[in-house]
Every structure is written in structure tokens, then in C-alpha cells.
Simulated assay, not measured.
Amino acid sequence: MGKQMTEMLKGTLEGIVLALLAEQPAYGYEITTRLREHGFTDTAEGTVYALLVRIEQKKLVDVEKVPSEKGPPRKGRQELAEFWTTWDFLRTHIERLNTNTTNTPNEEN
């Protein structure tokens, strides 16, 4: 994975993990496996565990010692909704920039 992809993933991984946890609760290893199934093949388990600690400290997820049918608590769901709103905004504006750039004739120097 290139440096640019790594940097972009750092900025979005929290939202991606919250989205996976909204689907179903999981432990770090299972989250890493699911990330890889979704194409994030270079995501290290250590990265996921560190991220889980951060989102637990922010109280975005409930950590339980026993299996549970609960997903992220309400605060985590709100954070996830904000992530998708932000993602849609960024995607739309980046796509516009890309369209404007690709439709602009190249200038010769």
C-alpha cells in the first residue's frame, strides 16, 4: 500500500471500524479479518487493537468480556453517522475536483 493510501486510511479507519461494529459486535482479530475481507488487506492487528482502545476511551463502543448482541452504543452510532456524513461530503467534493481536473484541457508550458 502506498504512503498516500496509508495516510488516507489513518483518517478513516475509525469510521470504517465503527461501521463494521454496527453490523455486528466483534473482537480485534475478527475486525481485522473483516477489514481484510473488505479489501483492507494491509491493516495490521496492532493498528486495530490500538484503534479499539482509542474508541473505547472515547466511549464510542461498549467493551464486554462476554459475547453480546449489542453493537456500538448510541454515542458510537452518532459518531458513525457523522463519519458517513463527512465521507459523503468529502467524496462529493473530491469527485467534483476530479471531474473538473479531468475535463480541463492540459496546458502546455
Rank of each mutant, 00 (worst) to 15 (best):
L52T: 03
V63Y: 12
Q4T: 15
N106G: 15
L13T: 01
V48F: 02
T85P: 06
F40Q: 03
T33S: 13
G15M: 03
L9S: 03
M8N: 12
D62P: 04
L80A: 00
R77W: 02
Y29N: 11
T47K: 11
T33P: 06
P25M: 05
E7R: 15
G76V: 01
E37F: 03
R36T: 04
R34D: 02
T6S: 12
T102F: 14
P72A: 00
T86G: 08
A26Q: 06
A22V: 02
Y27M: 15
L52S: 04
P67D: 10
K3G: 09
T102N: 14
P105S: 07
H38Y: 08
E37Y: 05
L13G: 01
L90N: 09
Y29K: 14
H38I: 03
L51Y: 03
T102I: 13
Q57Y: 06
A26H: 05
T32N: 05
R96Y: 09
P25H: 05
T32Y: 01
L18P: 03
Y29S: 11
V61N: 00
K75D: 06
T43L: 07
L20N: 02
I55L: 00
T47F: 10
E64D: 14
P73A: 04
L21A: 04
R54V: 06
G71Y: 01
T6W: 08
T6D: 07
F89W: 10
M5G: 12
T12I: 09
G15T: 01
L35F: 03
P72E: 02
T92Q: 12
E64V: 13
T101R: 10
L60E: 02
G71M: 01
V48T: 01
E64C: 14
G15P: 04
G15A: 02
G71P: 04
R74N: 10
K59N: 13
R77A: 01
Y27N: 15
V66L: 13
